[in-house]
């Protein structure tokens, strides 16, 4: 398959289970490198990129994992603060943004709770807050609203929408048709048996800076 994503675009990636959505997302957020083919991200070929340059690229990407992948020994606050700490933000500078983000996802009162004591929906919200806290240039979310109620799903999608309006390219893999229909300007990529279909014409956009 061959496609490009427009910088600042909002994309839904859909398709039946086992179609390869998660594999495609892993290539996007640099969890895997392809054995062949070409992937350009932020204007650079990431297939041949030296390994030591990967951390700088990964800091520009926010990821919501399907299985959340929260650090089990850290509180909700510390999990959300992790990308900022990795990037070297001082402790005094991260408390405000992390608390604000906790409030955004409705977990202001669970700041000290560890993942094991959070419900599935709460864990998912922490994972989303962690993915967006550093204002990434590319946000990749794998079934980000699968465990939350419709009201919270709407609220989280609004968060993605706000980020997108600020310039973040958003790619969300989902089965949720309500979710897809709630962002009017979003474009849809449908993956089926290794083939990428293009129901909304999203693939016709020429590649710009943020591309894959």
């Amino acid at each position: 398959m061959s496609f490009s994503l427009r910088e600042g675009g909002f994309y839904f990636l859909t398709g039946p289970s086992g179609a390869g959505k998660t594999s495609l997302l892993k290539l996007l957020y640099l969890a895997q490198r392809p054995s062949r083919g070409l992937i350009r991200l932020f204007g650079e070929d990431i297939v041949t990129m030296p390994r030591k340059r990967m951390p700088g690229f990964r800091r520009r990407i926010g990821v919501v994992f399907q299985d959340f992948r929260l650090v089990p020994h850290l509180s909700a606050f510390d999990n959300i603060a992790l990308p900022l700490r990795v990037a070297g933000v001082e402790e005094r500078d991260l408390e405000g943004p992390v608390k604000e983000m906790l409030g955004w996802v409705g977990l202001g009162h669970r700041a000290t709770a560890r993942p094991a004591t959070l419900s599935g929906g709460e864990q998912q919200r922490v994972a989303i807050a962690r993915a967006v806290i550093a204002r990434p240039e590319l946000l990749v979310a794998d079934e980000p609203t699968g465990n939350v109620d419709p009201e919270m799903a709407k609220r989280l999608l609004h968060l993605f929408d706000s980020l997108n309006r600020l310039g973040t390219t958003v790619v969300v893999a989902t089965h949720d048709l309500h979710l897809i229909s709630s962002i009017a300007r979003a474009e849809m990529l449908r993956l089926d048996r290794g083939e990428l279909l293009d129901p909304t014409g999203a693939l016709r956009h020429p590649p710009r800076r943020a591309e894959s």
């Binding site: 020994h73 850290l74 510390d78 603060a81 992790l82 700490r85 070297g88």
Partner: peptide
């Protein structure tokens, strides 16, 4: 946000449980 390679602060020492 600052770039480059940074040390984790004392808070992140808890990363190893």
């Amino acid at each position: 946000m600052k770039g480059g390679v940074r040390r984790f602060g004392s808070a992140d020492r808890r990363l190893l449980p």
